[in-house]
Design a protein around this nucleic acid. Structure first.
Lengths: 246, 246
DNA sequence: TGAATAGTGTCTATTAGACAATATACT
DNA sequence: AGTATATTGTCTAATAGACACTATTCA
């Protein structure tokens, strides 16, 4: 019908845990627009080779890191005429969690870097990627308060102390040790390995995630905040009805 | 670059409350593919006239009902090569809540109908719209258990009994009267009108939503279920690392 | 033995759920 | 008065938070 089609892209906020810090994968752009600015890894959808949007996201991260995504979920899709100078464009944004590299650091593609989460939003400049990253961080922070999400930042066997660190970094909350252990153990999402790990003091029991565990939803949040989200553009009058019926 | 661009569409699951039933807006298709099958209302994105994806969703519902959306949020975006026989296509799915028509029923566009929620998924046939609707229903059911979402199904002034009905229909839970009143009143999202409404017996106090209220998130869910979502395709071996680094 | 980390016992606080009791209308 | 719906009082249950206490290792 001659109408221009929007440009369709996928962008990924890929998080990992590295030495008790949360990091995000970022890439330096190699093309215009925003040449050499920092951006989220992503790709235009390859309608001929990507079977699904998720495949496109996996492909983008794999190309930069050589590491497969351990957990992935969609955060949001933004689309409008302003976000890309080339015209109307859509980006489907994913949150991805990656396991730490089991056999030491892996080489990254050129122009790709892991950036500490506290400085990442200030580093990013291209498009509206700063806002996209902030949405993904928000999702990580909030969802980690009522679900088992951060477990996917760990691989193989881990102690409860390590798991607690993953949750504390993800939620930005200081968690109470006893309450955290209770919550995790009673959720039934872990299995004991039987092994112990020496930490320089009393050795810790190690656990692994149950093999088919994807996500556990708790009935209560930690931090126990309630929150009321206000409407930025509250309407007045009688907004329900449009004067002209088509 | 010669690569085919995906077709980009928006589809809306628009819910309303009508005589103590939840209904969803459906349309009978007027074009191929799936001519005359029931589908979700939606539209191809008009890159030249829709400022944003949300505008596209609003336009689609307004065209069918003449009613503006009272609350809207994105549910998910699906995109793959199979869902539309014409080729790779993307649909951004929205959940919308509409107020009851204040001055009696409004005329709908031809081919548009409100369908009771219990039979709607069985009615829908076009594309993967049944799955999209089920995702939106799921969102409505779950989010209504920990947030104030169903309040947007009511307009103007309402009694707590009416509000409870809206929540019960949205959550599919039977709620305990005292606990429900406590929860709503202590959330601070309502204001008393001072008016009373006669119901044939003792009159009920009426309330309205605070004007700028968008969404209140409670720290606990009703129904107090916890849930563990299992991974449909649990991986085995060492999936983290891809053999070839690009 | 002392420092460090792991793990437990137990009390409190918050809020959902149950259910009976009271209040106010209409017939 | 009797019925219906609204509203409140109050006890129980579940689970997060606080915090002290015990256990096990190493230097």
């Amino acid at each position: 019908m001659g109408r221009p089609l929007p440009l369709t892209t996928v962008d990924v906020c890929a998080f990992r845990l590295e030495q008790d810090r949360l990091q995000v994968l970022m890439v330096q752009r190699e093309h215009e627009p925003f040449l050499q600015n920092w951006a989220l890894p992503g790709s235009v959808v390859h309608a001929d080779t990507d079977a699904t949007l998720e495949d496109c996201a996996r492909r983008a991260v794999l190309a930069k890191t050589g590491i497969r995504i351990a957990y992935m979920e969609q955060v949001s899709t933004v689309g409008n005429g302003q976000r890309d100078p080339r015209g109307w464009s859509i980006s489907v944004v994913y949150l991805a969690l990656l396991h730490p590299s089991p056999r030491g650091p892996r080489p990254l593609a050129h122009h790709a870097h892991w950036v500490d989460l506290d400085i990442a939003p200030d580093t990013i400049q291209a498009f509206d990627h700063q806002r996209l990253l902030l949405m993904a961080i928000d999702r990580l922070r909030n969802k980690s308060r009522y679900s088992s999400l951060p477990i996917h930042l760990l691989s193989g066997e881990f102690t409860l102390a390590e798991l607690q660190t993953a949750f504390e970094l993800s939620t930005e909350c200081t968690l109470e040790r006893k309450a955290f252990r209770r919550r995790m153990l009673e959720a039934g999402i872990l299995e004991e390995t039987g092994e112990q790990r020496s930490t320089g003091a009393r050795p810790a029991a190690t656990y692994r995630a149950r093999p088919n565990h994807l996500l556990h939803l708790f009935a209560r949040t930690v931090g126990a905040r309630t929150e009321t989200i206000l409407d930025p553009d509250a309407l007045h009058g009688d907004p329900d009805i449009d004067p002209e019926i088509k």
